[in-house]
Simulated scan of single mutants.
Amino acid sequence: MQMAQINGTRLHYALTGPEDGPQVVFANSLGTDFRLWDQILPLLPDGLRILRYDKRGHGLSDVPEGPYAMGALITDIEKLMDTVGFRDAIFVGLSIGGMIAQGLAAKRLDLVRAMVLSNTGAKIGTRDMWAERIRAVNEGGLSAVVGATMDRWFSKPFHSNDAFPAWRNMFLNTPATGWTGCAAAISGTDFMSSTSGLRLPTLAIAGSEDGSTPPDLVFETAGLIPGAQTHLIRNAGHLPCVEKPEEYARVLSDFLKAQGV
């Protein structure tokens, strides 16, 4: 277990692969920790230097009082990358992780040479929608929203998968303060203008059954960036790296190889 003191918050992270390997950063979604990527890592090209981390309020990282600002989440990974010596990396972000990717690329292009925007958007939902979810969690904990969340996250057949209860439990075990803190950050974020100014290799991945960030939203965001590639994973929801890890890893590997990895 590796921890770094960043902006007064201890962040849990993992570094794997050779020190001189091409650098890839993974940022996970709201309500998950960095185990989100476990199934695809063995399927990626050999020799990568991979950084995964639990954003504040999630996993084994500290849970400061919320609400959080998107700028703070971006600064967290910016300083973590500086701390571990990551520069010119390929950044893979899913959901809120994809928002962090967009914000970091706009702020520190020296850190990000290409990005994968998975199941995300330049703007996700509305302030009223997030306010209602935050209110529900404040009053009843994450159990108040777990059913609707799992329906948005996973295709119906996956609910019968043996792994489904583990993902449900991961969500329920997320600290409520961390979840609402990051939900507030999403609520206040609109990167339409800044993302439209980005000029770097980009791959957008969507799941056909995603009820949180539908394909139209993901591909609309990709359309802001000239030359961005898109890929639709069918019969998968908000976490296609969980439901369709082989296809997800293949598409990601092709993109990594195109960047010279």
Rank of each mutant, 00 (worst) to 15 (best):
A27K: 00
T83Q: 14
G85D: 12
R56P: 04
G21D: 09
V24A: 09
L41S: 01
D76R: 09
A72F: 11
M81L: 13
V25M: 03
G47S: 08
D76M: 08
S29G: 15
L30V: 11
M70A: 04
I74T: 09
F34R: 05
L60N: 13
A89E: 00
S61F: 08
E65V: 15
D62C: 06
L36A: 08
L80V: 12
M81Q: 03
L48D: 05
L30K: 03
R56F: 11
F26P: 01
D88N: 14
H58F: 10
P18A: 10
A89W: 06
P64E: 13
R49V: 01
G47T: 01
M70P: 04
F26S: 05
R35L: 04
R49E: 02
K55V: 13
N28K: 01
L60T: 12
F26G: 08
T83A: 11
P45F: 04
W37K: 05
V24H: 03
V24F: 12
E65Y: 14
L43D: 00
L60E: 06
G85C: 07
D46M: 12
D62K: 13
E78S: 07
G71W: 15
Q23H: 11
R52H: 11
T75M: 07
K55N: 13
A27I: 12
G21F: 09
F34G: 02
V25L: 09
V84Y: 11
D20Y: 14
G71F: 10
G85K: 03
I50L: 03
K55R: 14
D88A: 14
L41K: 00
L80C: 05
R35K: 11
D88H: 14
I40S: 01
P22D: 07
E65T: 15
G21Y: 02
R49S: 06
A72N: 06
L73D: 04
L51F: 12
E19F: 14
S29K: 07
D38L: 09
A72K: 06
T83P: 08
E78I: 04
L36M: 15
M70Y: 10
P42I: 08
D46Y: 13
S61V: 12
P18S: 01
M81G: 08
L48W: 00
W37R: 05
D88P: 04
L30W: 06
I74N: 00
L36G: 10
D76C: 04
V24S: 04
E19R: 05
T32H: 05
F34Q: 04
S61E: 05
G31P: 01
D38A: 12
A89K: 01
G66C: 10
L73P: 04
R35Q: 09
D82V: 12
D88Y: 15
S29T: 12
E19S: 13
R87L: 10
R56V: 05
G85F: 15
A69G: 10
P18K: 02
S61P: 14
T75K: 11
A89G: 09
G47K: 03
L51D: 01
D38S: 13
A27H: 09
I77R: 06
P42E: 10
R56E: 11
A69R: 15
P67F: 09
A27L: 02
A89V: 12
P45D: 00
L30D: 12
Y53G: 06
I50E: 09
G47A: 07
L36C: 05
L44T: 01
E19A: 07
